[in-house]
Simulated assay, not measured.
Amino acid sequence: MFFIYRDKQLFGNVFDLWLAGQESTAYTLAWIVLYLMKDQKAQKKLHTELSNIVGSNRYITLEDKNNLPYLNAVIAESQRLGNLLVTNIPRRLTEDIDYHGFTLKKDTIVCPEISQVLYDEKIFPEPHKFLPERFLDSNGKFQTKPELIPFSIGKRACLGESMARAELFLFTANLFNQFEVCDFN
């Protein structure tokens, strides 16, 4: 089966992607700046990593991503703690399911609560603290967790996830490679 997009439909979809991505990336970047402004120790660790791996004489590119585990951990922890999408988009069940002793009928509308996962103490101890180290293994390598779901999961996950991840990495890396943020209070 083929779908035919008209120019107007294509423009609308691309515009939605661009606008939604721009807004969520900007909000997440604001949380990253705030968390690092409040946690100067974490910011110092980030600056040290950036200085040691990249230096400040060039722009950081996506090719640098695998060599900057602490930066990736800061972004992951900021996405977890900032939690831009507390309640996910409503979904309709396509079949009856049993969930913890309750039967949910086909066609029931459910709203997954991402915050229930992102702030679960069993998965993320001290969930209301900014702790980028929770995303580093014992060797200091970045490790993602399947429970980190800021873009949702499954077939209805955010279409712009890869673009947002790239933008967050590049903006955060280049911003903090050139500047320090301070809290003057």
Rank of each mutant, 00 (worst) to 15 (best):
C111M: 14
L159A: 12
L104N: 13
I75W: 00
H100A: 13
S115H: 13
L62Q: 14
E77S: 02
G21W: 00
F151Q: 01
T25F: 00
K65N: 08
V14Y: 04
A166S: 13
S115A: 12
S138Y: 11
N72E: 11
K8P: 15
F124G: 03
L170C: 04
L17T: 00
N88K: 01
N177L: 12
F151G: 01
V74W: 02
V54C: 12
E147K: 11
N72C: 10
V54F: 08
D98P: 13
N67V: 05
V74L: 06
L68E: 00
D64N: 03
I153K: 14
Q143W: 09
V54R: 07
F130C: 03
Y59N: 14
L148W: 02
I153S: 10
P112W: 08
F102G: 09
T25P: 00
S78E: 01
L84M: 05
I153E: 15
V74H: 00
N57T: 15
L50Q: 08
T108C: 12
I75D: 03
D16R: 08
L19I: 01
I109S: 15
S152P: 00
L84I: 05
I75T: 03
A157F: 11
D137C: 12
G101E: 10
N72G: 06
R91I: 06
L81R: 03
L81C: 05
N174R: 06
N52Y: 07
H128S: 10
K105Q: 15
S115R: 13
A26D: 03
V33A: 04
R134N: 04
Y99M: 14
V33D: 01
G160R: 14
Q40K: 07
W31D: 07
K155L: 05
A157D: 11
L68V: 04
P127I: 07
I75M: 02
H47D: 02
P69C: 03
Q22D: 02
H47G: 08
N66F: 06
I89C: 04
V74E: 01
A73P: 11
T94G: 12
F184C: 14
F176P: 08
P127S: 01
P146F: 09
P112Q: 11
N66L: 04
E95M: 13
F2Y: 07
L118K: 07
P146K: 13
E95G: 07
V181P: 12
Y99C: 15
N177G: 13
K8N: 08
S24G: 04
I123C: 06
V117W: 09
V110R: 11
A20M: 02
Q43Y: 05
R156L: 15
K105Y: 14
I60L: 05
G140I: 03
F124P: 01
A30S: 09
N177H: 07
S78D: 03
A73I: 02
C111A: 13
C182Q: 13
N88A: 09
H100N: 15
A73M: 01
L10E: 00
E77H: 02
R165K: 11
S115W: 04
M1N: 05
P125T: 12
S78W: 03
L29C: 04
A42K: 11
C158Y: 10
D107N: 15
D64M: 01
S24F: 00
D16N: 10
S138Q: 11
N177Y: 09
W18T: 13
W18K: 10
F142S: 04
E167S: 11
A42R: 08
R91N: 08
R156K: 08
T25Y: 00
D7G: 11
P150K: 04
D183C: 15
A76T: 02
M1L: 15
L168Q: 06
I97S: 06
